[in-house]
Simulated scan of single mutants.
Amino acid sequence: MLSRVVVVLPPLTETFELGVACEVFGVDRRDDGVPVYELTLVSAVPGPVHTRHGYDIAAAHDLSKLDDADLIIVSAGNMEPAESATEARAVARVLDALRAAVARGVPVASLCTGAFMLGAAGLLDGRRCTTHWRHAAALAEQFPLARVDPSVLYVADFPIYTSAGTAASIDLCLHLVREWDSAGSANAIARRMVVAPHREGGQAQFVNRPLPSATGYSLGDVREWMRQNLRDNVTIADLAKMAGMSTRTFARLFVDETGTTPLRWLNDQRVLAAQHLLESTRVSLEFIAHEVGFSSAASMRTHFLRLRHVTPLEYRRVFGLKELVDNPSSTSVAATAPQH
């Protein structure tokens, strides 16, 4: 059971993620049956903590608080190397303290870009982990022994926990309460925060991730035709004939320009078109599957899970327009993929 929670504030602390940790672990909710946590803020460098938003935060406690912590959270902040020798020495002491805590079996969690500090401490080596999808590639490059998964909201790999960007900090903090205290406590905190106690899916559903851009233009007309005719059951031979080249040459050039195969690209475009209809209509899943060219709702579900990591129904539950009626004849739909 958690009692003493210590949050490490890195240079240029991001205040949203810090606020999440304070909200989950720093509010007295005994009236809801939630244990009271002793929350302590510790600065990674001496003096007031400078935030990225132009104001300072006073963290009155020193690193000795990490020695007695039941849980250590590294909040989001600066990912760049230390700007001075003094800062570098201070951060090095934090990294030593984090390694010592893990050696004692104390859980250590990072929120968003806080994962870079865990990486610098060597705590991500050989572990699956995550961070904000915009910084996942940089995390993997800086710490090649880490197994970075940019598609999830958080990763629990005891004693290391990492979250994706911004609001995913809520998901991880609630998970920590659920795992170390109880599901009842996590649900009570979620109700008070007016958030879901557990979100389905991963951060891939929130990424504006268009399919790979073409590096050339020779197949642009073919791809546009494919977008406008998603319901057509075409073969690579049909597309190659349209492009005026052999099947083998067409397939090779398509991969060169888009980074994927023609069939995979076409099914991804169908998912994007289905996503648009799920957001803007209440028509049935079977109707949408037919409109965008899938053979069935089950087939659409398979490809939707692959690309968006949630089912079509789960996606509609989060992003759909609630006021539309479930009546295909009353909604104008177009079986073409939205442009990106």
Rank of each mutant, 00 (worst) to 15 (best):
V45D: 02
P46Q: 11
P46D: 12
P46W: 08
V49M: 02
H50M: 13
H50V: 15
T51V: 05
T51D: 05
R52E: 14
R52T: 15
H53D: 13
H53T: 11
Y55S: 13
Y55I: 10
A58R: 10
A60R: 10
A60L: 05
A60C: 04
L63Q: 05
L66R: 10
D67Y: 01
D68S: 14
D68A: 14
D68K: 12
A69F: 01
A69S: 09
A69R: 10
D70N: 06
D70R: 04
L71P: 01
L71Q: 00
L71H: 04
L71Y: 02
L71I: 02
L71R: 04
I72T: 05
I72M: 02
I72V: 06
I72E: 02
I73C: 08
I73H: 03
S75Q: 11
S75H: 11
S75G: 14
A76M: 04
G77I: 12
G77A: 12
N78D: 15
M79E: 14
E80A: 15
P81T: 09
A82E: 05
A82M: 02
A82Q: 09
E83I: 13
A85S: 08
T86I: 04
T86D: 13
T86M: 05
T86K: 09
E87V: 06
E87P: 01
R89V: 11
R89A: 15
A90S: 07
V91A: 04
A92C: 07
A92S: 13
R93W: 00
R93Q: 13
V94R: 11
V94P: 01
V94K: 05
V94T: 12
V94I: 10
L95Y: 08
A97G: 11
A97F: 02
L98P: 10
L98C: 09
L98K: 12
R99F: 00
R99V: 05
A101H: 04
A101S: 13
V102D: 08
V102P: 04
R104F: 00
R104T: 01
G105S: 07
